[in-house]
Structures are given as structure tokens and as C-alpha cells.
Design a protein around this nucleic acid. Structure first.
Lengths: 341, 341
DNA sequence: CTGAAAGCGCTTACAG
DNA sequence: CTGAAAGCGCTTACAG
């Protein structure tokens, strides 16, 4: 708990010199540096993060904002987080997961004091008041996910449009014509307007129509039970369905089971493709699911790099905003097959 | 971005008075309070968190420390986190998930500056240097999980010993005698010595022996593939196994499939009981798994309450350390049945 | 290369 | 009930 002042006294130098040594801010003669370093070691000096933050306006802390109460942290989000935290650490920053629980005022208190240098926003809706607020507060930020209007928004995101097109290309290439979409129902919840769902469903409807096919969309409740019910609902809508795209990890296997309960074998009678998912999640199913894997790791890394570039002023003043889109990549396993004759 | 000084000037009072109004620290006459409040509103005043922290040594921030690089955040940990964050918020604190990436020095930097008021440690090993370090630093903390020696450790934890005994009582009550344990292999990883595994395995061995039964223990790799392999290993050890306790959510279904690949029906030939798990995880299996559910929600809440009591000085000086143990609760579903004749 | 000093924006005894 | 002032532990122009 020694202070910089104590170190200075012990080393017989000024407090400024200690600061220069600690931060490498200015040249210090080897001899002086030596004395200061020794004094620091003897006293067990630790730079006081809060004092430094107040004086310098930098904390090297980045907050990953998450609407903890409204949306559970899924495995894709966890990958974002892990990957972002890692990359931040490599670049000399701390990244912490900050559950924003109450209203927007909490955000202001947090940020206006300079507690964090920058912010990563996730779980973004098509219209998202947090984005405007961050812009107003002039806090450096980046978004994982994007609002409807991305003109002034720095973001990285999954390319849901391309992912859906690729998925449909794949299924139609296998000869499927009667294709359903199973998607989480967020209407009426605080996550209504969640961008990934809106974009995916919209693209599904448009693309199917463009391909001259009928878009069958069914919503899905939580967990395995939700998936079972979705299977029943889908078959009620279109008994001859031959392929299903599902965007809900924790219900995908329930969907498969619901289909087999109804006498449809996967993949012989019905193909199932789980999107915005992962190999590991797919392997939890029987048969192993064909998936389109979310690039969570890459996005977490890229988001942090772009933000820190901004923080460190490495970005040119007139640099373009980061606008990065990565599609999910297809991994074919055991739940998809050519359409039955 | 108005400062307290600006508010004071505008309201025609001293900065101290503004502080009193903001924090409710002292009586202020209604008239003065009125003027100050008005000035704050007009200027859009926000209390600077960092400055307050430096002056008052309080931030109302709690860090939930997680070894992010070494251990992935499982669903039980996520429940801890959500529940703890919620309870903290209700009690006027922020709880953030802090991935501690590098060595112990990072911990010291973080804490010695008073950036956080207190710490919750999770993923504790039987011997855990973080605990000693926190004690040395005199930082208020609580542990979710416990080391081998808990004499001076404030903690809440799952009662793994009782959970295992209850599980074995249940299975032997169904007539099972040849019972195996499938558990994650952490030897050689940085999570070696992880307390939940050590305690569970030890209790399994001791209790089985006490019951006059042979303890069959098999380790398990990651994911569904790990579970399949574990099934094969277990049957190689004891082909007539009739029940398995598995402590690894993400491999439990793989285990079931591995058993059926080997010609064992679940639960007719072999019962499977997934411990330290949850209903939701169990529902992802076919048949739905009988589980012993981790009390993640309760533990998160209790941990935060105990820590904040300490922070707010509400705890009596000579109060006992919190030592709370909650067992997992049995939820019987479709994967367990009486032992075959 | 080094130091004296102002300043970051608050809190909190201490006086009145 | 209110204020003047010291202090929290640093950083950073500015001088020399």
C-alpha cells in the first residue's frame, strides 16, 4: 500500500520521476531508474488505479455491456466475451462483463466518470437507445451487432443475410423445396426487435419468395420442450416439409425429437440445419446436427481491436468506421440429406 | 459533464453542500436542497465515480473473478453470475464479471487501488493461491466454492459430499450395486485440483467402499465425444454396470448414446444420473435425464448478501464467517429406473 | 534528465 | 444548517 510519494522519498527523487519510471512516460537516467525501481520493490509499490484514472482520464478498462436481466448469455455470447477479453488482455487492457441492469442512467454514471475507457455493446436491437446514448456521451464504443441504421455506427456483426442465403442455397441444392424456419419468439419481451432474429426471418421470407417457394415460419419457446412444440406446429402448417432451418441452439435437439415423434426421420425424411450455432452444440444432438457456425471468436477479437485502435488514437482521424460482417460457416454433419424423392 | 463545483456556483452554495445533497450524507435545509437539485438538473450533473472513489475509498463495485482462460464459463457459473449480479443491483451495487487473465499481480493492481470494494471468487481449487492473496491484501471477499482448509475462508458452496451421498442413496435404493462415476479429467491442466471434482470423486470412492461396493471411476474428455468414450471405458471396466453418475453436463448425452451404441438401453439396462446439473440441461437428452440440480441461483444470491453485509459493516465485528453449504436437489426424470433383475 | 506545482473531481473532519 | 480547506494518489505541462 505504499504510495508514489513514499517511493519518491525513499529513492530521493521527486514524485514526478517515479511516475515517469512507472509509466515509461519520459527518459530517466539508468542510475535514477535503478534507485526508483529498488525503492518500489522494497516498499511493494502498486500504482493506484483509481488515482491514475482521475489524473489521466485513462483506466485501460473496457466494459462489455450485457442486458443481463433480459437475455440470458448464450454460448455464442460467451465466445464473444472470452475472445474479446483475451485480445484485450494481449493489448494491455482489461475487459469486464458489465450487466446493465437498470435504466439508462446507470450507463451515464458509469461512463461519465471515466471509469471505463470504452464500451462494447452486444445483443443489439434494430432500434437501440443505448447506441444513441453512447453517441451522446461521446464514449468510444463498438457494437457487436447492428441497428437498422448503421450510418454512424461502428460495428462487427454476423452477416445474417448471407448466412441465410447460403443456408438456403445449400438446402435447395439438395433438392429441398418445402423449407421451414424455426425461430425464437421475442414479441412482447424486452428483447423484441432483437436484430439477429429480425434480419434472419426477413431474409428467409424474401429469399424463399424470390426462389418461388413458400416461407413457413414457426416460433419456438424455450428449451427442448419449445423445440418439440415447434416441430408439431411446423408439421401442422406443412405436413410435407422436407427441411427446417432452426436458429435456436437449445431447442434444436427438441425439434429433432419432435419430428421423430411425429414419424419423420432426420435426415431421411426431414433435414435440419441449425444456424448461428457451433460444432459443439451440434454434437449434442442425435444425429449430429449440420450447423452454420457463428464466428464468435473472430468477432470478439475484431471488435476489441477496432475499439482499442480508436482508444489509442491509432486510427486516422478521418478513418472510416469499422463495418465488419462475417457469415456463419456451413459444417455438414448428420442431420441434412438430399430431399426425399 | 458538469462538475460539482459548477453546480455549487450555480446554486450559490459550497461544493460541500452539493456533496451532502448528492449523497444524503448530512441534513440540508429544504430550500437549499431545492436550489442544488435544480442546478444539478439544469447542468445535467453526474457524480464522477472515479473522483468519488478516490476520495471516499468506496466504489460500490464488486468483482466476480473468473479464470477465463483456464476454465470455460459453464451454465452453473452463469447462473451464479446472473443471480449475484441481480442481487447486487437490488442492494445498490454493481457486480461485474472480471476475467483474471494473467498472474496474481493483476489481482493486486486491481484491488490495491480501491477500484472494487469487494470480490467474489469462483472456480476454487483445493489449494488456491488467490485466497491467500486476497487475505493478504485485506480485501473483503467471499468464495463460491471452498478450499481444503476453510478455517478462515468465508464461503458458500454446493455440498458435494451430501449430493453424492444422496445420489448413491437414491441409486442403491433402486437396487443398483454396480455403479460407475464419470468425471472430467483435469489432471495436467491448470484446473487440476478443482475442488468440486476432488470432493465428489473422493466421496464417491469412500461411500461406495463403505457400502461394500466397488467404486468404478472413469474420466471423460470434452463434449459429446468425451461422453461416448467414457461409456466405452466404463463398460470395459465393468460390463455389468447398472448405474452411472455423471458430473459433466456437456458429456451426459454423449454418455447415454455411447451406452446405447454398446447395446445398453437407458434406463432399462443402465440408469444415468447427472449431478451438479439442471433440469434444462437434462431436458436436452433422450430420454430426459434424471438430475441433481445445482443451486446456482441461491448461492449467487447468498454470496452477494454475505459480502455486502461485510462491506456495509452490518456484520457484527465478531460475527462468524459465512459457511453455507447447499446440496443439489434430486429431480427424477426418465434416465433412472430400478436395477435390472 | 529532474523537480515544483497545479490539477483531476470529489469527500469529510473541523469550525462556526 | 453551511462553508473553507485539506486530502485521496496520481499525471503532466512547464521550467530549468
Amino acid at each position: 500500500m505504499a504510495t508514489m510519494q513514499e517511493v519518491a522519498t525513499r529513492a530521493g527523487v521527486s514524485i514526478a520521476t517515479v511516475s515517469f519510471v512507472v509509466n515509461g512516460t519520459k527518459r530517466v537516467s539508468p542510475a535514477t531508474r535503478e534507485r526508483v525501481t529498488a525503492a518500489m520493490a522494497e516498499l511493494g509499490f502498486r500504482n493506484n488505479v483509481v488515482a491514475r484514472a482521475l489524473a489521466s482520464k485513462r483506466t485501460r478498462i473496457i466494459a462489455l455491456l450485457h442486458p443481463a436481466l433480459e437475455h440470458r448469455l448464450g454460448s455464442t455470447s460467451m465466445k464473444f466475451f472470452m475472445s474479446a477479453a483475451n485480445r484485450a488482455s494481449e493489448l494491455g487492457y482489461h475487459l469486464v462483463l458489465w450487466p446493465v441492469v437498470t435504466g439508462p442512467d446507470e450507463l451515464r454514471d458509469l461512463l461519465s466518470g471515466g471509469l471505463v475507457d470504452g464500451v462494447v455493446v452486444m445483443e443489439v436491437k434494430m432500434e437501440d437507445s443505448r447506441i444513441e446514448r453512447l453517441t451522446d456521451l461521446r464514449v468510444p464504443f463498438i457494437s457487436i451487432g447492428r441497428t437498422a441504421d448503421t450510418t454512424h455506427l461502428p460495428f462487427v456483426d454476423i452477416d445474417f443475410e448471407k448466412t441465410m442465403e447460403d443456408g438456403l442455397d445449400y438446402l435447395t441444392g439438395l433438392g429441398h423445396r418445402r423449407i421451414g424456419l424455426v425461430i425464437e419468439d421475442l414479441e412482447g419481451t424486452s428483447m423484441a426487435g432483437y436484430a439477429p432474429h429480425i434480419r434472419s426471418e426477413r431474409t428467409f421470407r424474401e429469399s424463399m419468395t424470390r426462389r418461388g417457394l413458400l416461407p413457413h415460419v414457426v416460433t419456438c419457446g424455450p428449451g427442448a420442450a419449445g423445440g418439440r412444440q415447434a416441430a408439431a406446429d411446423l408439421l401442422a402448417t406443412e405436413p410435407d416439409i422436407s427441411a427446417v432451418i432452426v436458429m435456436k441452439d437449445d431447442s434444436a435437439f427438441g425439434l429433432v425429437r419432435g419430428l421423430s415423434t411425429a414419424g419423420r426421420r432426420v435426415p431421411d425424411d426431414v433435414s435440419v440445419l441449425s444456424i448461428a450455432s457451433s460444432d459443439e452444440a451440434g454434437a449434442q444432438s442425435e444425429p449430429v446436427l449440420s450447423t452454420m457456425n457463428a464466428p464468435g471468436h473472430e468477432l470478439g477479437k475484431l471488435a476489441v481491436e477496432a475499439l482499442i485502435e480508436q482508444l489509442d488514437g491509432a486510427a486516422a482521424p478521418d478513418a472510416e468506421l469499422p463495418h465488419l460482417l462475417l457469415p456463419c460457416l456451413l459444417h455438414v454433419a448428420g442431420s441434412t440429406a438430399p430431399a426425399p424423392a
